[in-house]
C-alpha cells in the first residue's frame, strides 16, 4: 500500500490547521487521543482540548454544553462506543437541541478486527441516521476526509463522521479531490448506460472501484458512486445511477439492516424500481480476523463484488 496516513490522522491535521486561527474550535476525547491520532492537537492546543476520561455520555454532554456557548466541538471516540453508549446524548443534547457538535467515530466498522463484537460498529449508520437533525458521513480516503472536515468546520449543525483505523489506498489526490457537500462523487460511468451501478461508502469505495475496473476488463460496464454523504443521501445521484443501470449494488462496512443499502433501496424502489443487492456485514457477530480477512470472507473485495455483479446480470 502506498498511502501510510490513516483518515484519523487527516482529521487531526485539518483540525490543527483550523485551530491556528480559530480559538473557538474545541476537541474532546475519552481517553482516546492516541487512537484518534489527536495527541498532537492536545499537545499544541491544550486550552482547546478537553479530556473527559472513559465516560462517553459525559463526553457528548460536555461537548454539547461547549457548543451551546459558541464553541465548535469535535468529539473523537471509538465508533463502537460513541454510537451506542452516548446515543441518547447524541439524540437529545446534539440533534434535538441542535448544538454544533461533530461526533467522530474512529476505528469504525470492523477496524478492531479480532477484538470482537463489543468493538465493532456495524450499527452506527442505522442508529445515527434515524435521529432527526443528525447527518452521517463516511469518507472514502484521507483527501476526502480532509475536505469533509473543512466543510464541517464551516457549518453549525450536528453531524456524525465515521472513519476506520487503518490507512486506506487513496481514491483521490491532494490536487484532484472533487468535493461538494452532500453530493456523491461519480468515480466511473456518469452519463453512460451500464449493467450495474455500484454505490459505496467509506472504506468500501475502493473495492467497489476495483470491481468496476475488473468488470470493465471482462466487457461488463459498471458505474461507481462514492456516497460519502449517507445522510442526507444524494437522492438525485442514486436515481441517476439506477436509471442508467440494469441492477444496483450497494457496498458498506455495516449491518445489512438500516445502512446505505436500506437507504438506497428506498429511493430506488420509490423512483426507478430496479433489482438492488445490498452487500454488507451479516446480522451476526462477524468472523474473527483482520479487516482485509473479514472483508474477503464476506465478499466485500473487488473480486467478491465483481462476482456478485456477474451473478446478478447472468
Amino acid at each position: 500500500m502506498a498511502n501510510k496516513i490513516p483518515n484519523r490522522q487527516a482529521i487531526c491535521e485539518a483540525l490543527m490547521a483550523h485551530a491556528e486561527t480559530d480559538p473557538e474550535l474545541f476537541v474532546l476525547c475519552s481517553d482516546s487521543r492516541g487512537s484518534a491520532s489527536l495527541a498532537p492537537f492536545a499537545e499544541r492546543f491544550p486550552e482547546q482540548f478537553v479530556e473527559v476520561g472513559i465516560a462517553e455520555q459525559n463526553l457528548v454532554g460536555i461537548a454539547a454544553g461547549l457548543a451551546a456557548c459558541g464553541k465548535k466541538a469535535f468529539v473523537a471516540s471509538p465508533a463502537c462506543f460513541l454510537s451506542t453508549r452516548s446515543y441518547e446524548q447524541a439524540k437529545v443534547d446534539c440533534a434535538y437541541s441542535n448544538t454544533n457538535v461533530k461526533l467522530i467515530g474512529i476505528s469504525g466498522g470492523v477496524s478492531y478486527g479480532a477484538l470482537g463484537m463489543s468493538h465493532h460498529s456495524a450499527q452506527d449508520i442505522a442508529a445515527m441516521s434515524a435521529l432527526p437533525n443528525m447527518r452521517v458521513y463516511l469518507p472514502s480516503d484521507r483527501h476526502q476526509t480532509k475536505r469533509l472536515v473543512e466543510a464541517l468546520l464551516a457549518d453549525e449543525k450536528p453531524a456524525y463522521l465515521r472513519v476506520g483505523r487503518n490507512p486506506v489506498e487513496d481514491i483521490y489526490s491532494e490536487a484532484a479531490c472533487p468535493f461538494e457537500m452532500d453530493r456523491a462523487v461519480w468515480l466511473k460511468g456518469k452519463g453512460q448506460q451500464v449493467k450495474a451501478a455500484l454505490i459505496a461508502c467509506g472504506e468500501m469505495v475502493r473495492p467497489a472501484l476495483e470491481a468496476a475496473n475488473r468488470l470493465e476488463g471482462e466487457g461488463v460496464a459498471a458505474s461507481v458512486l462514492d456516497m460519502y454523504c449517507v445522510k442526507p443521501l444524494d437522492r438525485e445521484a442514486v436515481i441517476e445511477a439506477a436509471k442508467s443501470a440494469d441492477v444496483v449494488v450497494t457496498v458498506e462496512e455495516h449491518s445489512v439492516y438500516g445502512g446505505l443499502g436500506s437507504m438506497v433501496a428506498q429511493v430506488v424502489g420509490e423512483h426507478c424500481p430496479r433489482r438492488v443487492k445490498c452487500l454488507a456485514l451479516p446480522d451476526a457477530p462477524v468472523i474473527t480476523g483482520t479487516s482485509p480477512e473479514v472483508f474477503a470472507h464476506y465478499g466485500l473485495t473487488g473480486e467478491g463484488i465483481a462476482c456478485t455483479v456477474k451473478e446478478l446480470i447472468k
Binding site: I62, L66, A68
Partner: peptide, 25 residues
C-alpha cells in the same frame, strides 16, 4: 431556554461543558 431536556441525567454534563467554555474563554 438554553437546552432541551426531558431524559434525566443530561443537565449536569451539559453544564460542565458550559462552565468549561466560560473558564477557557
Amino acid at each position: 431556554i438554553e437546552m432541551n431536556s426531558g431524559s434525566l441525567g443530561h443537565g449536569l454534563p451539559v453544564c460542565v461543558g458550559m462552565a468549561l467554555a466560560g473558564k477557557r474563554s
